[in-house]
Design a protein around this nucleic acid. Structure first.
Lengths: 151, 151
DNA sequence: TATTGTTATACTCTATAACTATA
DNA sequence: TATAGTTATAGAGTATAACAATA
């Protein structure tokens, strides 16, 4: 099942394609870990973003990189499990302020621990210098590219 | 729409999460470019992998990172458009040998050009040294991690 | 028995259009 | 008229179970 990767080198020559593949693999690993908590990657994103402080659904959607329309069912699921609460924003009644419940905060703690373990295993083939170099480069790329279109 | 990225820093602290996000963005850019040729990212993967030479559906599925069962409709679509051909393998009649048609090879040529352009724009915030460092690190990570499960 | 390819199914992700209510 | 949130829908991606033909 593994020797196929050795062939078809052309496919892996492009950095963009490689990035998409490695990103999908990272997503798969996280998805499997999060499955143990019955959470999806996007739900994870919502919880971690809210750990920073409350936010509207619009702000939150931007932070986790999904269209606000697609954020609705993600947030619905977390609300049903009482991990977060939608409360009316008093100054603008169109807006829903989202906050973590105590159970939500407890979940975030557990996820942080599990996430660190997972990341160590995912990156174990890289040295410390390579890891921090990778993080810095990805961060630069993310800031330049996230939310924009190819055009 | 852009200032949200400045907040929720916690979310971006993990390299695994960043990788998944930047990978998704790369996939989105590619998806948009490929849409102009009415191709999906997986179909692109199949065509590029076959440019290296013929392969069975099993080998191909491994190369593009999808389950063989899910490869069937991807290959069906390309066959319908006459970009590739399924021919019986004479030595093992269970097997289908997949090869590019002339139209398929012409498409690959166009895709290579468009892909290089896209990649230049996607990576334009990085210097040459950063780019090749990124590619090398991703490649190492890919070889270590692709096709394996988390634990 | 194991492998190649297929069919069928279901759940998630992504993208888009159209709506309600508030501003 | 613009914005926050919602509903509904459709296509693509991902995963799994069951099967036929061939080895």
């Amino acid at each position: 099942m593994r020797q196929e990767a050795a062939d078809h080198e052309d496919l892996l020559a492009g950095t963009g394609y490689l990035l998409a593949r490695v990103g999908a693999e990272s997503r798969r690993w996280w998805g499997q870990m999060l499955g143990e908590y019955e959470l999806t990657p996007h739900q994870y994103g919502v919880l971690m973003a809210l750990a920073d402080g409350a936010a509207s659904q619009q702000r939150l959607s931007g932070a986790i990189g999904v269209d606000p329309r697609n954020a609705v069912p993600i947030i619905d699921a977390l609300e049903r499990r009482m991990l977060l609460a939608r409360t009316a924003d008093p100054v603008d009644r169109r807006r829903h302020a989202l906050t973590l419940t105590p159970q939500g905060r407890a979940m975030v703690k557990r996820l942080r621990r599990a996430g660190e373990d997972l990341e160590d295993r995912f990156l174990e083939s890289l040295g410390d210098a390579e890891r921090s170099q990778l993080h810095a480069t990805l961060r630069k790329l993310f800031d330049a590219v996230a939310g924009s279109s190819p055009n």
